[in-house]
Each structure stands twice: as C-alpha cells, then as structure tokens.
Simulated scan of single mutants.
Amino acid sequence: MILEAVMLNVKSGQTEQFEMSFKEASKIISKMKGYISHALHRCIEIENKYLLLVEWETLEDHTVGFRESEEYLEWKKILHHYYDPFPVVEHFEEIGLN
C-alpha cells in the first residue's frame, strides 16, 4: 500500500466552496483502479490549509493510472484552481515496525 500525502493551501475566502467541490471530486477518485481510501483534514492552526491522504495499492495506480486518465482531467478542472501555491505530492510506504 502506498500513501499519497498532499498539503493543500486553498486561496483565502474559498474554503467553503473548495470543500463542496472536493466532495464532488471524491466521487471521481474513489472509482479509480488501485484506489483504497482517502481523507481530507482541515488544519486547526493555519486557516485555509488542508492535508489530503490517499491510499493506493501501488505507486503506479496513482502516478500512471489516475494521473494519465480522463478522470484526472475532470478532477483537475474541479479542484486545481483553488490552490496557491500549487501543492507538492509525496508518496510514502509503511516500513513495518509493528
């Protein structure tokens, strides 16, 4: 399992609309091959900041399967205009210390 982690800085005054748009966009990502789950968290200390966590079966499910799909173009159209600056996407794998 791969964890995609993204800090999202939403333009001031647009958080309410962003959250509604994200709800709509969630329907897109949740249907993708290799998708496991996702969660959006609002920062308590910093207004307009969110953390998006998405679990994928493989890195390629995100970087190729989703990012190179028609569905991604729709996701981008719904969400990308809210961000300033544009977010950096990072991927993590569990190291199994349990």
Rank of each mutant, 00 (worst) to 15 (best):
L3S: 06
L3C: 08
L3E: 06
L3Y: 07
E4R: 07
A5K: 15
V6K: 12
V6S: 13
M7W: 13
N9W: 03
V10Q: 02
V10N: 03
V10C: 00
V10P: 07
V10F: 07
K11T: 13
S12Y: 14
S12N: 14
G13M: 01
G13W: 06
Q14N: 13
Q14I: 06
Q14V: 03
Q14L: 14
Q14G: 11
T15Y: 04
T15R: 06
F18I: 09
F18K: 04
M20N: 13
M20T: 09
F22K: 03
F22I: 09
K23G: 02
K23H: 10
E24W: 05
A25K: 04
A25L: 03
A25I: 02
A25D: 02
S26F: 05
K27N: 15
I28E: 02
I28N: 00
I28L: 12
I28R: 03
I29D: 01
I29N: 05
I29S: 01
S30K: 11
S30A: 03
S30P: 05
M32D: 07
M32I: 12
M32F: 09
G34T: 03
Y35G: 02
I36H: 04
I36C: 07
I36D: 01
I36F: 07
H38F: 09
A39G: 12
A39K: 14
H41S: 11
H41C: 10
H41A: 11
R42M: 05
R42Y: 02
R42G: 02
R42H: 04
C43Y: 10
C43P: 00
I44C: 14
I44R: 15
I44Q: 14
E45Y: 08
E45V: 09
I46G: 09
I46L: 12
I46D: 14
I46F: 10
I46H: 13
E47H: 13
E47P: 11
E47A: 15
E47G: 11
E47M: 14
N48C: 05
N48P: 05
K49S: 03
Y50N: 01
Y50D: 01
Y50S: 04
L51T: 04
L52D: 00
L53Q: 11
L53T: 10
L53M: 12
L53A: 04
E55W: 09
E55V: 11
E55A: 13
E55D: 12
E55C: 13
W56T: 01
W56K: 01
W56V: 04
E57H: 11
E57Y: 08
E57M: 09
T58K: 15
T58F: 07
T58Q: 11
T58E: 06
L59M: 14
L59I: 15
E60A: 10
E60W: 08
E60Q: 09
D61H: 01
D61L: 07
H62Q: 06
V64S: 00
V64L: 00
V64R: 03
V64Q: 08
G65E: 00
G65A: 05
F66G: 06
